[in-house]
């Protein structure tokens, strides 16, 4: 396995939703994209979780599954999950999901100083806020809890179906 090209590993990871974390040609760990995203979203914006908003489901359904988000953007979002784990591996020799809270925070602080990291985290935050504050028809914003939190009334009429 060590002889496989790094890019090939990444492609395999994207297809299977598994993340193969490499250091050079050496495989350092395997995790799933979903578990990394779930934990990352809680680290970035715990409030959505406490409001019972399914941000990860929204991310898969209304972001990665959306016809108007470019393939390039989707690839960047997925690659970012791999790069986050690589950064965790570099700093603490562990996958992101295996780190304690304060180490995860440190990893986030580190990547936010890089160009890709800042761009990726800002996009992930944007999509968390979309999940939390979009019309409930998109299956985020459960029971309009995001709107209630911000004393926002929402717009009427509501959409009859999601635009995907």
């Amino acid at each position: 396995m060590n002889t496989l090209h790094r890019r090939k590993f990444l492609q395999l990871g994207l297809l299977s939703s598994a993340i193969f974390v490499m250091q050079g040609c050496e495989l350092k760990g395997i995790t799933t994209m979903r578990s990394t995203i779930e934990l990352l979203q809680r680290d970035l914006f715990e409030k959505s979780h406490t409001l019972n908003i399914k941000t990860t489901h929204y991310f898969y359904n209304s972001v990665l599954g959306h016809s108007r988000i470019s393939q390039e953007e989707k690839k960047f979002l997925k690659n970012g999950v791999s790069w986050l784990n690589e950064a965790a591996q570099e700093q603490y020799k562990l996958l992101y999901v295996k780190l304690p809270r304060h180490h995860r925070e440190h990893v986030l602080q580190t990547i936010s100083q890089s160009q890709w990291g800042e761009e990726w985290l800002s996009k992930m935050l944007g999509y968390i806020l979309e999940a939390t504050l979009s019309d409930p028809i998109y299956l985020g914003n459960t029971n309009e809890n995001g709107w209630k939190w911000l004393e926002f009334q929402g717009g009427v009429p509501h959409p009859k179906e999601p635009y995907l």
Binding site: S62, H66, R68, I69, E130, L133, S134, D135, I137, Y138, G154, G155, V156, P157, H158, P159, K160, P162, Y163
Partner: peptide, 14 residues
């Protein structure tokens, strides 16, 4: 057909 769907209208350029 019109609704106040911020995602569709303003973020996905319906």
């Amino acid at each position: 057909d019109f609704s106040k769907d911020e995602v569709a209208v303003c973020r996905r350029e319906l």
